[in-house]
Amino acid sequence: MIDFRYHIVSIVAIFFALGAGVVLGAGPLKGTGSDIIQNQANVDRANLVAARDEINQLKALNKYHEDYEAKVTAGLADNKLNGRRIAIVTMPNADGDETNALADELEAAGGQVTVRVALDAKFLDPGQRQLVEPLVQNLVTADLDFPQNSTTYERAGMILARGVAAKDEGRTADADSTRIISGLTGSKLVSLKPSQVKDRASLIVVVAAKPATPAPDNSTYNDAIDLIEGMDQGSGGVVVAGTAETAKDGGLLKALRSDSDATKIVSSVDVADLPAGQMTVVFALVEQTTGKAGQYGAFDAKNGIAPADVQVKDN
């Protein structure tokens, strides 16, 4: 057992150490602590300056890349879509500026954007399925041939495509397409600009929205992917345009690219907010007219940066 005398000795030793510390503090070690802090502050300040310089350099390089794409490589997609009519379908909350930039690129490539279709959030809301299912049944046309075991949203995609698009060029609006558009807009599931379609498109660009926060599970997009597959089957081809966020977990492109059936027929581009990505959307549309599909961009894009036909061949 430790006795009382041991406690006294220990306490005296502690006070002696404290006293020595005070004396030394006034002696040769005075300021050592503050010097260390000051030196660390200087190091941190230098690191911060270096980090800021690096960020500014990266911003300058990024601007150079964007300016180069927009000004030097501008025109690479010119005339690629001559004679092609395109419908743009925007997912709920899709970015308006991105959509406008894509529309401008499609027009610059010689295409004609015939209509912009904005999907309302309730179209893909599981709680609204009881509205979507009977509407799909009511809007079926005699010339629609649904695949066996097709889902409600796959059929909905084919019906939407029948309203604004066709598999071939040169198709105009008819009684069936007008009835479909009236039914979809009347139920507030979609809105159109312009509100009336004169010429039906042959190609469709779907603009993905950035994922919500927190990011949803990839299975959340199952209905959306079925809808997109249906639009592809009812048109001459579909390209889904998105950004980096959409190609990561919780994004539409990530879910699409994880569906082997969808990637056989639907193309995607994950850098559609960049000039080069917008041109890639054009190239992917052209490829769609040949019956091919590919996944392009910078993030898990298994087919590379762009269709092989527009890339420089290795010697």
Rank of each mutant, 00 (worst) to 15 (best):
D300K: 01
A70E: 11
Q288S: 15
K167D: 09
G234P: 06
D44F: 07
G170F: 00
L106W: 03
G110K: 04
V22S: 02
D199F: 10
P134H: 10
A224T: 10
V240W: 06
E69H: 07
A308H: 10
Q295H: 08
M91D: 00
N100G: 12
A109Y: 01
L139A: 08
V115P: 05
G111L: 08
A94D: 00
G186S: 08
V269P: 02
P147F: 04
S202T: 08
T90S: 14
K264F: 03
Y221S: 05
Y153C: 04
G251E: 04
A165L: 08
K122F: 07
R179K: 11
D309I: 11
T172A: 09
D309C: 08
V113M: 02
A20Y: 09
A156I: 02
V115D: 06
T246E: 10
L48W: 10
T152W: 07
F146K: 00
A60F: 13
R116D: 09
F283H: 07
T290A: 11
D176G: 08
F15K: 08
H65D: 14
L124V: 02
L61S: 13
I37F: 07
A272L: 03
L184T: 00
K188W: 10
A293T: 08
M91I: 12
T151N: 07
K63P: 07
T263M: 09
A26L: 15
D270W: 06
V282H: 03
V205N: 00
A166T: 02
S182C: 03
D97P: 00
V136P: 01
D314N: 12
G111C: 08
T114M: 04
K302S: 11
D143Y: 08
A255H: 11
A224Y: 05
V271S: 15
V9L: 14
L203W: 04
T99R: 11
L252W: 07
E245C: 09
I180M: 03
I181A: 09
I159S: 01
P147C: 05
V43W: 01
K264I: 01
A308L: 12
L58A: 10
K254S: 15
V23A: 09
V281P: 06
T99G: 07
T152A: 14
G21S: 09
D168F: 03
Q112F: 12
A109S: 13
A118G: 11
V207T: 03
E229K: 15
V113H: 06
L24C: 07
G234I: 00
D217S: 13
R45S: 10
V205Q: 05
T243Y: 05
G25V: 04
I181R: 13
D35N: 14
K264H: 12
L29K: 11
L81S: 03
D261R: 13
A166D: 14
T213Q: 14
V239W: 00
R116S: 14
T141E: 10
Q311R: 11
G83V: 03
G234E: 04
A208G: 02
Q130E: 13
D78V: 02
F283I: 01
V239H: 01
R155C: 03
K254I: 05
A101M: 07
D35C: 05
G27A: 10
T99V: 10
F299V: 15
N93D: 15
A247E: 03
A109N: 00
A121Q: 13
T289C: 04
D53N: 14
F123S: 06
E66R: 14
R45H: 08
I86A: 02
